[in-house]
């Protein structure tokens, strides 16, 4: 019975992760090659992907590891680059609440991609939601580790130019945003998120805008709490 339940959840989860499969394999391979070019043995990027599993931070880690040892600033830098996970955590509090033993790995594997799929997925009737969330996260994680391993070991032999294939992930996020737009009762939060992030990107630049956007979004949602809640109740 239990095995059937797992198989059903894995089967329902997999199609949702196909765009991530392409994106992560390509990015993972790129990461493996990048770290190799910096002079690290293949073991280093593979272990980082296994233990850290955070795409943009891992690229930053490449330059951190080639500079002088700086524990405190490394810690703070990581918190800033990955601060958006806090948003995802608050958004997933309810959904990940009763996952039992699956809770730790599912939260450990929470990334932009697993968040975006799990927050918006309509889990099919009869499929266990918890196992669905777990498998989406597990699949994403495996693609990343497999991609990194391929890149670190075989990277230099890839015969074609893969530049741009990772656009699949941008496309995935846009598709989810459009789907969300069509479902939501009020567009205030989506529009606020778009506008504030865009303004912060222009003002603070690509490397610093996320934390500013998060502060701006929370302020915005706090100030507009009453009108938004009124609209949601209608």
């Amino acid at each position: 019975m239990e095995r059937k339940k797992l198989a059903a959840a894995a089967k329902a989860a997999f199609p949702n992760t196909i765009p991530i499969l392409t994106g992560f394999l390509v990015l993972g391979i790129a990461y493996g090659i990048y770290m190799k070019a910096l002079g690290f043995s293949p073991v280093v990027p593979i272990l980082i992907s296994i233990f850290v599993f955070a795409g943009s931070m891992q690229f930053v880690a490449g330059s951190v590891l080639t500079a002088a040892f700086a524990p405190v600033s490394t810690f703070l830098l990581t918190l800033m680059v990955n601060a958006r996970h806090v948003f995802y955590g608050i958004s997933m509090l309810e959904k990940y609440r009763d996952l039992g033993k699956k809770k730790f790995p599912t939260i450990f594997w929470m990334c932009d991609e697993s968040f975006s799929v799990n927050v918006s997925a309509e889990v099919p009737e009869g499929v266990d939601k918890g196992w669905f969330y777990f498998f989406v996260s597990l699949f994403d994680y495996s693609y990343w580790v497999i991609g990194t391993t391929l890149g670190a070991i075989l990277g230099q032999f890839i015969p074609f130019d893969t530049t741009g294939v990772d656009f699949a992930m941008t496309a995935l996020f846009i598709v989810i945003l459009v789907g969300q737009w069509e479902k939501e009762k009020s567009h205030i939060s989506t529009l606020g998120g778009l506008g504030i992030s865009l303004v912060c990107l222009v003002i603070f630049g690509a490397d610093n805008f996320i934390v500013a956007s998060m502060v701006g979004i929370v302020l915005f949602l706090t100030l507009l709490r009453r009108p938004i809640e009124r609209r949601l109740e209608e």
């Binding site: 939060s189 998120g193 949602l221």
Partner: peptide, 16 residues
């Protein structure tokens, strides 16, 4: 926040 943040977070991710 748990209810309204996901929409803004997805929007931020697209800008990202």
């Amino acid at each position: 926040l748990g209810k309204v943040l996901p929409a803004a977070a997805m929007a931020m991710l697209v800008i990202y």
